[in-house]
Design a protein around this nucleic acid. Sequence first.
DNA 1: TTAAATACGATTAATTTTGACGTATATACA
DNA 2: TGTATATACGTCAAAATTAATCGTATTTAA
Lengths: 135, 135
Amino acid sequence: MNKINKKTEYALMALKYFSDNTQGPVLVSAKDLAEKTHTPFDVIARVLQALSSRGILKAEYGVSGGYQLVKNLEDITVYDLMNILESSTELAKCLGSETSCELSSTCTIVSPITNLNHRVQNFYKSISLAEVLHV
Amino acid sequence: MNKINKKTEYALMALKYFSDNTQGPVLVSAKDLAEKTHTPFDVIARVLQALSSRGILKAEYGVSGGYQLVKNLEDITVYDLMNILESSTELAKCLGSETSCELSSTCTIVSPITNLNHRVQNFYKSISLAEVLHV
DNA sequence: TTAAATACGATTAATTTTGACGTATATACA
DNA sequence: TGTATATACGTCAAAATTAATCGTATTTAA
Ligand code: FES
Ligand code: FES
């Protein structure tokens, strides 16, 4: 289906909000972001946690806590984001995990798929979030 | 999830079989291809029908019938194949169909997603099946 | 006439994605 | 020091999508 999932979409919305509102308060809570982006709280909360654990956001606990953008969008690629939020960035199930192609020895297109997979990943690695969001 | 679906995978297998066996008989039946590629008959049969309806294969009815490759793999792009066999080639549900982004006016990333979508599609349009399969 | 092949509508099964619930932990502030 | 508010995360259920199957019609060589 070649689609990015909702989590990646929500992440783009959140990051766009951060980069569009550099004047306002630095810390923005998950609740606020859910409202601003019209996304379900539970889901975007998870997304923010994931971005935080990967050093893109910084989390502040407590009453007036929230998240802060701490990485430059120029330095994050679309591939990075997918890697954090998609269940898998591989073009086929067999790639990447322990269920290796070589084991299922009947497959006739291991090397074509592997090759295409690399090309797609390199493509996504070549695009920064700054490029995507500042259009 | 960014994955190609099984139908696209099976199509690659079938097309690879055709292009690897230019010496043998020109017509190959769905049954044969299912055996050669170790794929479920019903599914690959549908795939072959789809490729046939789009002018990539030519179908021959009857007892000694089957399919024949009638298009040059150089002239088919990965995008073409996805367009034939994937439920959608768009990066987000809202793109392309009648459920337009503009209608769901709360979305904050319509133009970024649209832009990224074009880039991805152009990327897939730039790769031919010959390039993919002859590695 | 019959067997073997394509064509396709409809349905079911399997998998993946999305969202929700419950609870633990941390911190500012009254 | 208690309370409200915020992040963190394990688990589960619902929804959507993908994959596979069943049944039947049509075409044609032998
Ligand atoms: S088993 Fe990996 S491409 Fe087929
Ligand atoms: S509605 Fe189309 S990208 Fe959000």
